[in-house]
Amino acid sequence: MIKVEGVKKQFNKNPVLIGLDVEIKEGDVVAILGPNGSGKTTLIKSILGMVVPDSGIITVKGESNRKDSSYRNQIDYLPQIANFPANLKVAELLKMINDIRGGSVREKELIATFGIEPFLNKKLSKLSGGTKQKVNIVLAFMFDSPILILDEPTTGLDPLALIKLKVLIEEEKAKGKTILITSHIMSFVEEVANRIIFLLEGKTYFNGSLEEIKSQTKQADLEHAIATFLEKEYA
């Protein structure tokens, strides 16, 4: 579904990705993990075409992502930091994205789920961080695209909203969607993901199932498994 081959990228002589190869198959729920600055967001932005790699090829459903923009119709994206145009109201933003992209299927349902109705007529700049993230989630999930990319989806969410988010992800999983998640909350990753890609200094350090990572590091949970990797590398 998504194929990343030999992707290299540096920002101002600071190498972030050094020859990354990743393949994500249809129906995979993949967590991209790694310490801060390991290139998770750069990888995601490269797939979305927001970052242009120095070399390497990225294909989505067999087509290069540099050719055309229509492949992004297949992708729903939840950005890490929800930056929205400040002088728009929530309802206007939803309407605008709907108008640009077309075909939202569950906007009303999601607004109800996350309790956004009271904020619909408020400006985005006036919202709290958590509410912004809820709007962000509504925007990402309202289109029924086959690929979901979630960059730190849990940021700022209260426990209730977090549970609702997990339910939402489970639903999408059940539909057979391909999902890519980054997160620093290991318990969350353990609950939702079935495959782990661990990035370290711009390379794939580990790529396998949850069970494999645990058995390889001889740890009972993911958090300790990842910690073992880091200790081994930096010791």
Binding site: L48, G49, M50, S69, S70, Y71, R72, N73, I75, Y77, P79, N83, F84, P85, I97, I100, R101
Partner: peptide, 8 residues
């Protein structure tokens, strides 16, 4: 940035 993630 919002627009860049859309199919435009």
């Amino acid at each position: 940035e919002l627009l860049l993630a859309q199919p435009i």
